[in-house]
Design a binder for these strands. Structure first.
Lengths: 198, 198
DNA sequence: CCTACCGATCGGTAGG
DNA sequence: CCTACCGATCGGTAGG
C-alpha cells in the first residue's frame, strides 16, 4: 500500500505536530525551537513526539521538501503553458506569491531553515531550489528570444531580483491585510515587468 | 571622554569577538550559535568572553544596531540630495547594495536575527527599520510628485518589492564573483526602475 | 583571561 | 502516549 498523499486538511497527531512546527520554525527558527516548545503547543509530553516522528531534523525535512514541492507544483505548469512569455511569467509570479501567501511561516522555513538539514538531506534540497530558479531563468530566456524582454538582460541577476522581491513578501504579507495575494501578485508583477518609471 | 568611534579595522579582543559573531550569527543564526562556538573561533575559553561582553544578546544588539546604522548612514544622505528623483533613488539603491555586499553575513544578521532581541531592545530596532523603509517611501513619493514615476503606484508595495530584491542579495552576493557590488547595483536598479520589457 | 563550576535545558530513549 | 530518565550542551559566574 502506497503512502497516503498529504494534503492541507490532513488531521491526526502527525499533522498537528507538523502544523505547529511550521509556525514555530517560521517564527523562532529551527534552532530556536525546542522539541518541548512543539510538544507544549500540540498538547503532548516531549518524549511522546517520538511516537509520531523520527527526529527533529526529519520534521524539518518534511516541511522543507513539501514546501519546495508546492512552489514547483504551482509554478512549473506555467513555464511551457500557452500564451506569450510575458503572460507566462506573470502567471509564474502570481503562482509563487500565492504559495508564499498561503502560509508565510512555511515559506520562511523553506527560504531560511533548509540550512539546518544535515549532509544526508541538504544536497537534494539545494538541487531542488536550483531547479526552481532554473524555471524562472528559462522563462526569462523565452521572453528574450521572443523579443518581448530586453535583449541584454543579465538572466541570473533578473531572476534573483524577481525571486528576492517575491520571497521577501513572506516577511510582510498578512492574510488579514487589505490586499489579497492575487492583488499583491499583480502589483509586484507590474513593478517587476514594467518598472516604476512613468 | 566619549566612547571611541568604531570602525571596520578596529582590532583587539572585543572586535575579534564581534567579527566572528557576525560570521557565525549570519551563517548559523543567533540561536544556532553557542558562546562556545564563538570562543573557539576567537581562541578563548567560553567563560573568558564575558571579560569583553556583557551577554550573548548584547553582542547581537551591537551587531544589529551598528548594521542598521550603516544602512541609514549610507542611504539617508541621498534622500534629499541634488539630482532628479530617479537619480536619487538610483543612488539609494546603489548605496544599499554596497552595504549588503560589504558584508553579506552582517546583512543577514540585520535582516533576520533582530527577532531574537529581547523586549528591552526589540522596539527600537523595529522603529529604526521602519524609519529606513520610510526613506524609500519618501523617495518614491518625490518621484511620483515630480511626474517621473507612475502616478498610481502603491508606494508600500513598491518599496517592499525594491527592498526585497536588494535584501535577497545577501543570500547570493559573492565578493569574489564576477560582478562588483556597483555593477550588481546598476543592473538591479535598471530592472527595478525600467522593468524587463523591451 | 583561565579554573572550575552552576542550574537549566537540549534531543532523544527504554519500557510499559 | 506517559513515566522516568540519559548524557550533552547551554548561557553565564565566582574567584583569582
Amino acid at each position: 500500500m502506497a503512502l497516503a498523499p498529504r494534503n492541507e486538511t490532513e488531521s491526526g497527531p502527525r499533522a498537528a505536530i507538523t502544523h505547529v512546527s511550521i509556525q514555530l520554525f517560521g517564527k523562532q527558527g529551527y534552532t530556536g525551537t525546542s522539541m518541548r516548545d512543539i510538544a507544549n503547543a500540540v498538547g503532548l509530553l516531549p518524549g511522546s513526539l517520538y511516537a509520531h516522528i523520527a527526529s527533529k531534523e526529519a520534521l524539518l525535512l518534511g516541511i522543507v521538501a513539501d514546501g519546495i514541492g508546492r512552489f514547483i507544483a504551482a509554478v512549473e505548469p506555467f513555464v511551457d503553458s500557452s500564451g506569450t512569455p510575458v503572460e507566462r511569467l506573470r502567471k509564474m509570479i502570481g503562482a509563487h506569491l500565492e504559495v508564499v501567501a498561503d502560509n508565510p511561516e512555511r515559506s520562511q522555513v523553506v527560504f531560511h531553515q533548509w540550512r539546518f538539514l544535515g549532509n544526508d538531506n541538504l544536497p537534494e534540497a539545494i538541487e531542488r531550489r536550483r531547479h526552481y530558479e532554473a524555471l524562472f531563468i528559462s522563462a526569462i530566456e523565452a521572453g528574450v528570444a521572443a523579443g518581448e524582454f530586453k535583449p541584454n538582460l543579465n538572466r541570473r541577476i533578473v531572476v534573483l531580483t524577481i525571486l528576492g522581491a517575491l520571497n521577501w513578501s513572506a516577511e510582510w504579507f498578512s492574510p488579514d491585510g487589505k490586499l489579497s495575494a492575487a492583488q499583491v501578485g499583480e502589483l509586484m508583477a507590474d513593478s517587476l515587468l514594467t518598472g516604476i518609471l512613468a
